[in-house]
Amino acid sequence: MSEPISGKSLHGHLDTMVLAVLDKSEAHGFEVWKRLEAQAKGGLKLKEGSLYPALYRLETAGLLTARKEEDDSSRRGPRRRIYKITRKGKRRLDQGRQEWQHFVSVVECVIGAPA
């Protein structure tokens, strides 16, 4: 199997990936991470702390909204923030998906072409 994709190669794509996993339903940071991991099937090699700057960027840009979760006495630690994709975020995700498809098809034409 190929090496997992690391932080540098992910540069510029992490934000769209976060939007993609939040497109299904809202989630807190740890859940977002679990979804990324599950969907990438172990193919990501990223420090988990890097997820939060991405979430803050997206929130500042109005692509996500956040609210505090309800009090949950069954778990330790501070209340988590639940992130939800906005309409603007959904539009950005659609755009990101199209750009990605275009990128893949162009690179495929060059790299994937028989020698």
Partner: peptide
């Protein structure tokens, strides 16, 4: 404070 709490919360789950 928001950064601290969120990272700490994540770290506890990990």
């Amino acid at each position: 404070l928001r950064m601290r709490e969120e990272l700490y919360s994540h770290l506890l789950e990990v």
